[in-house]
Computed example of a mutant assay.
Amino acid sequence: MIDLVINARKASIGEGMEVKRILPFRQKRMVGPFIFMDHGGPVQIDRKFKTSLDVLPHPHIGLSTVSYLFSGELVHRDSLGIKQTIKPGEVNWMTAGKGISHSERFENAGLLADNSLELLQTWVALPEKIEEVEPSFVNYQPSQLSEHTDKGLWMRLIAGEAYGIKSKVNTDSPLFYIHVKLENGTKFSLPKNYSERAVYLVKGQLEIGGETFSAGKMIVFKMNKNPVIHAKGDCELMLLGGEPLGERFIWWNFVSSRKERIEQAKEDWKQGRILLPEDDNKEFIPLPENPFKPKKDPSPEPLS
């Protein structure tokens, strides 16, 4: 029933901002088209301290970034000229395609002090035929996302299709991404008809197949199995999965089905051929010399 359990690992994406990194994992690089998943926070900063949580302008290719906030607020700027503040329950869906740069800044110091910042960022790899699509960005409001409630259950379909519901968020391959809250004792089943499925436990404890799992774990399930998820106390979780796209190479913020395309992207960033956001172009993250720690697994994990 259970194929693999992934324990979130600590990773730093800047001074004062440590995240839980779930994907990629050495034994499981992707779940469906999902190739990256970070859980940031909860973080609370005293307003008298100047923080450096901002993520400076940096590039992407070959993927869509999906930002989803539980609490707090951040400001997105990109090389398309878009500036967008994202708040809890909203979705920022940015498709990098042939190349885009963006920044994420925490401009409201009061919010950082008064509300714990907590967010999830995932990357969705693009099908090979559209890896070089023109970049785009869309913000979706909570009112545009389908929600469902039942006894002991609340669910928001962020993207894709599940349980007979289809999200208004535009996607490029079969997938599902769902935010779920369960009350103590509630039982729940995964979406069917997908090759790869997983649960990431944000808060609380779950029982699956007689095993108990705590927050910070991703449970990946075998194909054609329909496990029952049993909440042991109040829980919050993310369901994700879909159909695999084939092998993908990943280096820093670049994803591609071709190694040579990664090398081109590295050179494009070094030479300034990927533009910076027009109103956030005074600083940027330079191309790392070697962003990965030595390890036995030759396929690298990204930093952020």
Rank of each mutant, 00 (worst) to 15 (best):
V199P: 09
L63E: 08
I22H: 07
I22E: 08
L112H: 12
L182F: 01
P300M: 04
K151V: 13
G62R: 00
F254G: 11
N281S: 15
K98L: 08
F292R: 03
A8M: 06
P294M: 09
K168N: 14
V75M: 01
K166M: 01
G242E: 06
G160L: 04
E104H: 06
P288R: 03
H76G: 00
L53E: 02
L112F: 15
V202P: 03
D38I: 01
E15F: 07
G16P: 08
V75R: 05
P24R: 13
E207R: 12
G204Q: 04
K98N: 13
K87G: 00
L23D: 10
D3V: 09
E260Q: 12
S214E: 14
W93E: 02
A125N: 15
G99D: 11
F249N: 11
K129G: 01
E196L: 06
K87F: 02
G89F: 03
P57Y: 04
M155C: 05
G152E: 04
P59K: 02
Q144D: 14
E278S: 11
S189F: 00
I82V: 10
I262F: 06
L157I: 04
N184K: 06
T95E: 01
T122D: 01
T51L: 00
I285Y: 06
G41A: 05
L201R: 02
W154Y: 14
E243N: 14
P174E: 00
M238R: 03
S189Q: 04
L237I: 08
C235P: 06
G89H: 05
T51Y: 13
S214T: 11
W269M: 11
N7D: 15
L63Q: 07
V199K: 05
R273S: 07
K282E: 06
L53C: 04
Q271N: 15
E104N: 09
N281P: 06
F106H: 13
M17Q: 03
S67N: 03
E301K: 03
F25H: 14
F106R: 03
E73D: 04
G185H: 01
F213V: 06
L157H: 07
F249H: 15
P298W: 14
D54C: 04
Q84A: 12
A109K: 15
G164W: 09
Y163F: 15
A159S: 11
R21Q: 15
D114K: 08
R29W: 05
I178W: 01
L63P: 00
G89C: 04
I100Y: 13
G110Q: 11
L23S: 11
T186A: 08
E73V: 03
D268W: 14
S195M: 07
S257P: 15
G216P: 11
A231T: 10
V228M: 10
Y163N: 09
I165Q: 05
P57G: 00
P294H: 12
L201T: 03
K129W: 01
W251T: 14
L56A: 04
I35E: 03
